[in-house]
Simulated assay, not measured.
Amino acid sequence: QVVLWNAETLKQKAVLEEHSLLITDVRFGPSIPRIATSSFDKTVRVWDVDNQDDTVHTFTGHSASVMSVDFHPNKDDLICSCDGNGEIRLWSISSGRAVRNFKGGSSQLRFQPRHGGFLAAASENVVSILDVETQACVRIFEGHTEHVDSLCWSPTGDYVVSTSEDTVKVWSVNSGNENCVQELNSTGSKFHACAFHPKYPSLLIIGCYQSLELWDMVENRSMTVAAHDGLISALASSSSGLVASVSHDKHVKLWK
C-alpha cells in the first residue's frame, strides 16, 4: 500500500491499496497532482492525489515485476516503467496504453529533469542513457563492481549519479566521455539511495544503513549523520526545501 501524508500537518491523508504485491517505486507528477506506482504484481498504476477512490489508469503488459516508474518532467501524459527482464515501456496516461517498448533497464529509471530528452536506466552494474524520442542508447556507463541500486540526475540534467553498495559515481552526459568524473567510496557504510539537496545543488545526500552521508561534491568532503535504525531504501527532495528518507525500520523522516 501507499500512504499519503500532509507534509505540513504530518497527518495521514489517504491509503492506496489496489496493488496485490510489493510496491517497488512511487513518483509524484511534476505539475499535475498525480502519483505513479510500480509493483511486483507486474502493473503500473496512476492515482489522482485529490481523488483517491480509484486509480486513473492501471497499466498492464509487463511480463515481469515492474521495478521502477517515472513521470516525464514536461509531458504530463507520459510515464515510463521498467521490469526485471530489462523491458522499458513508455505509457500514455490518457489512453492507458504503451506507446513504445524497448530494452535497456531492469532496476531503476529516471527522466532527465527539465527537458526529459534522456532517460537514465540501471541494469545490474551498468547505467545506460537512452534518447527518449528514438530509444537509442547514447551512453553506456560502466565501472560499478556492485549492483546499481539508485539513480538521480543533477538539477541541471548534465550529470547522472549512480549508487551501489560500495561507491557513488558521477557521470557527465554531455561531455562524450564515458568515464566516471567523480566518485565517493564507502568506508563501511552501505550506500543505497541518492538525492540532491533541494537548496544546495552541489550537495548530494546518500542513504546508507542507518545513516545519511552528506557529500559536498565541490569540496569533495563528506560527513555522516545518524538517521534510522535500518537501511535507508529511498530519498526524495522537494522544492519546499525538505528531504524525505524512508527506511526498513518502517519510519519516514523529513529533514530541513
Rank of each mutant, 00 (worst) to 15 (best):
Lys256Asp: 12
Leu184Thr: 02
Lys190Glu: 07
Cys82His: 01
Gly84Leu: 10
Ser245Lys: 07
Ile32Met: 15
Gly86Thr: 03
Glu142Pro: 10
Val170Pro: 15
Val49Asn: 07
Ser175Gln: 08
Ala244Leu: 07
Thr167Met: 11
Val44Pro: 07
Glu178Pro: 13
Gln210Cys: 09
Leu231Phe: 05
Val246Asp: 02
Ser65Ala: 13
Ser189His: 12
Ala64Met: 10
Gly188Arg: 04
Asp249Glu: 03
Glu213Val: 09
Ile35Cys: 06
Ser154Asn: 10
Val218Leu: 14
Val170Arg: 12
His197Pro: 12
Gly176Lys: 08
Val138Gln: 12
Ile88Arg: 05
Gly61Asp: 02
Lys75Ala: 07
Ser237Trp: 00
Asp77Lys: 11
Asn51Gly: 08
Arg139His: 08
Ala236Glu: 03
Trp215Leu: 03
Tyr200Gly: 07
Ser233Gly: 12
Ser150Arg: 05
Gly96Glu: 02
Ala121Val: 02
Ser233Gln: 08
Arg45Trp: 03
Lys190Leu: 13
Ala227Glu: 00
Ala193Ser: 12
Val2Tyr: 06
Pro73Tyr: 00
Asp50Lys: 15
Thr55Trp: 11
Asp83Cys: 07
Ser245Tyr: 00
Arg27Lys: 14
Asp149Trp: 08
Gly230Leu: 05
Ser186Asp: 00
Glu146Gly: 11
Trp171Thr: 01
Ser68Asp: 01
His192Arg: 14
Thr156Ser: 15
Phe141Ala: 03
His72Pro: 13
Leu22Pro: 06
Cys194Met: 03
Ile35Asp: 00
Val132Thr: 10
Ser172Cys: 10
Ser211Asp: 09
Glu133Asn: 15
Ile140Thr: 13
Ser172Pro: 13
Trp5Ala: 05
Asn174Arg: 15
Val49Ala: 12
Leu214His: 06
Lys169Leu: 05
Ile32Glu: 12
Asp149Ala: 14
Ala234Leu: 07
Tyr209Trp: 11
Glu18Arg: 15
Val69Phe: 00
Met217Pro: 14
Arg45Phe: 02
Ser81Tyr: 01
Ile205Cys: 09
